[in-house]
């Protein structure tokens, strides 16, 4: 169960986490609780998987280069092809989606040359053509995701 403190930490500290010597102490003062209570609550959020981490969020293509890739794979081959693709360390998301283009994954590489080499290798490994969908523009203003936590 999420306590009122958990919910405050989740909603109010998705951005502007203090850059100070004792950030948890600063949060504690802002919320009128102790530093130990803030640390305990963050540990609980972490341990229960409600947050994946606290830290810097990097937008795509600021460190390295990434591209979304779509493939059409026969249903019977899907798992085997997906396993081959997931084995690449450059692949960090891999989803089956309900569409003729049914396999969607993200490749992250050091530079364009590396990216194209990985895509080419995946095409040769799997025998299916890859449709490359790199980001041309990012329209997302990331102010954190507004959570409705009343019934969480």
């Amino acid at each position: 169960m999420l306590s009122p403190l958990h919910k405050q930490l989740l909603n109010d500290y998705q951005h502007d986490f203090p850059l100070s010597a004792r950030p948890y102490q600063d949060i504690a003062e802002q919320l009128g609780v102790s530093e130990a209570a803030v640390l305990t609550a963050f540990n609980e959020l972490n341990d229960n998987g409600f947050i994946s981490r606290i830290g810097p969020v990097i937008p795509p293509n600021h460190i390295g280069i990434s591209a979304l890739v779509a493939m059409a794979v026969p249903e019977t081959q899907l798992q085997a092809v997906a396993d081959k693709i997931s084995a690449y360390p450059e692949v960090n998301h891999n989803y089956e989606r309900e569409h003729r283009l049914n396999l969607w994954f993200v490749v992250i590489a050091n530079d364009t040359e590396h990216l194209h080499a990985v895509i080419k290798s995946i095409e040769q490994d799997t025998g299916y053509p890859a449709m490359l969908l790199p980001m041309l523009d990012d329209f997302f203003i990331d102010l954190g995701f507004k959570l409705e936590l009343n019934h969480a």
């Binding site: 998705q14 994946s52 937008p59 990331d142 102010l143 019934h151």
Partner: peptide, 26 residues
């Protein structure tokens, strides 16, 4: 802290904070 601040000002870091697991939160 100074380097994190500079990277944030340069847009290399979008934000610093808790990263919620939406699936787990419902």
């Amino acid at each position: 802290m100074a380097r994190l601040t500079a990277m944030q000002n340069d847009g290399i870091i979008r934000r610093i904070g808790a990263v919620p697991n939406h699936y787990k939160l419902g």
